[in-house]
Computed example of a mutant assay.
Amino acid sequence: MDPRIREHAEVVVDHSVDLSEGDDVVIDAHPVAEDLVVALHELAADRGANPLVVQDRLGERYQRAFLRNREEFETPGHVEALYDAMDAYIAIRGNANVTETSDVDPETNAAYQQAQQPLLAERLSKTWNLTQYPAAANAQLAQMSTEGYENFVWDAVNKDWDAVREHQSQMVDILDPADEVRIVSGDTTDVTMSVAGNPTLNDYGEKNLPGGEVFTAPVADSVEGEVLFDKPLYHQGREVTDVYLDFEGGEVVDHSAGKNEEVLTEVLETDDGANRLGELGIGMNRDIDRFTYNMLFDEKMGDTVHMAVGRAYEDTVGEDNEQNDSAVHVDMIVDMSEDSRIEVDGEVVQRDGTFEFEDGFEG
């Protein structure tokens, strides 16, 4: 076994979920990630935890078969009971075929996601971690060799996360007390939103691994302006390019995409909360230096901002603000490396990807 797999497992167990004696942990993984699952079991045994492997959320062929042969869905009570009983949940991305579900109707996918929402809420209420195994299919999607992708993944995962936390805390200190944020990129993106009263979180590899962002939730009805997401979105096995969203009073009033616009439309029509923003995130991990069609990594890239339509994470919503609720949470990315700026309460805090606390910043 590659020793980096053991190191990856140690980061998950000790840093991300802090597995303890007696913990019941569910590990959701495709068989291609077996080596990482084995390493996690070794560590679970060392720490006296009780692992159970499922292939529920991250399945491929059997999930496609189910979705293509059913149109109406209900929340599976037996799965909900499992999640209710567990102490921790570890999800490992890794695919045999990244486009396996690409021929499932988007409307069917939307209905399935709605039925899965109580399961998602239960998982998020527990200690959880989402990470990536460098499978060959994911390397292919990233247009990398298998070895090159392995190096990319483990360089991004096996890091000094305390140092990451310290660096990113400088942006948290700017954003957390703020009232208004404005994102400008070229002549295609100019959007403002209130974040007043909503906490800013520092993602340093606890829930998402790799980490490398700071994020918060917009006040749901405050978003105004237009955004062109110039990095592709890979959703439901389909590539959606040049996503354009126009916001008024917090709602998407117009949208388009250069490719697979119907997928975007189905996302926005999933439920009432799907056409509002649930997250504003700022990528700060410059070790993630290329786009790989994997949002777990892509949203953390330095010189980027991402926004998610749909569900807001509970921890990012202040007690006096309303949490945007939805069955979906779909992130999309804006390149901020050129002709771009982030303004916080009228002050430029990032220009062309460089933060005000970094060398080379020009306000």
Rank of each mutant, 00 (worst) to 15 (best):
A217T: 15
D179C: 07
V164K: 00
F152R: 08
L130Q: 11
V191N: 04
V172S: 04
I174D: 05
W161G: 05
V157K: 12
R182Q: 13
L209G: 10
E213C: 02
E166G: 02
G205Q: 00
Y204G: 03
K126I: 05
V164N: 00
W128Y: 14
V214W: 01
V181M: 10
G212Y: 02
T146L: 12
D203H: 00
D155G: 02
W154G: 06
K159T: 08
Q170M: 05
V214G: 00
A217V: 11
F152T: 10
A139S: 15
S145A: 05
V184H: 03
A142G: 10
E213M: 01
G212L: 06
L141V: 10
N158V: 11
A163M: 09
N151C: 03
N138S: 07
D173R: 14
E150Q: 13
Q143Y: 03
M193K: 04
R165G: 13
A136I: 09
Q140G: 00
L201E: 12
P177H: 07
W128S: 09
S185C: 01
L201G: 08
Q143P: 08
N208P: 06
E166W: 00
E206T: 14
Y204P: 03
S145V: 11
A135M: 10
A217Q: 06
F215E: 08
P134H: 04
E166V: 12
R182T: 13
T188A: 12
A156S: 13
A156Y: 00
M171Q: 09
E213D: 11
G212W: 06
T192F: 06
L209A: 11
V172Q: 14
V184T: 15
W161A: 01
E150H: 09
Q143A: 12
N208I: 03
V157S: 10
Q143L: 05
P134C: 08
E166C: 05
N208C: 04
N151S: 14
H167S: 13
Q132F: 05
T216G: 09
D173N: 15
D162C: 02
A139P: 15
S169W: 05
V214S: 07
I174L: 14
W128F: 14
N151W: 08
S194H: 11
G212P: 02
G197T: 10
P199S: 11
V195N: 06
G212C: 10
D160R: 03
H167A: 15
A142V: 06
E166Y: 07
D179H: 10
S185R: 09
R165I: 05
Q140W: 03
L130D: 07
V164M: 11
A217D: 03
V157I: 15
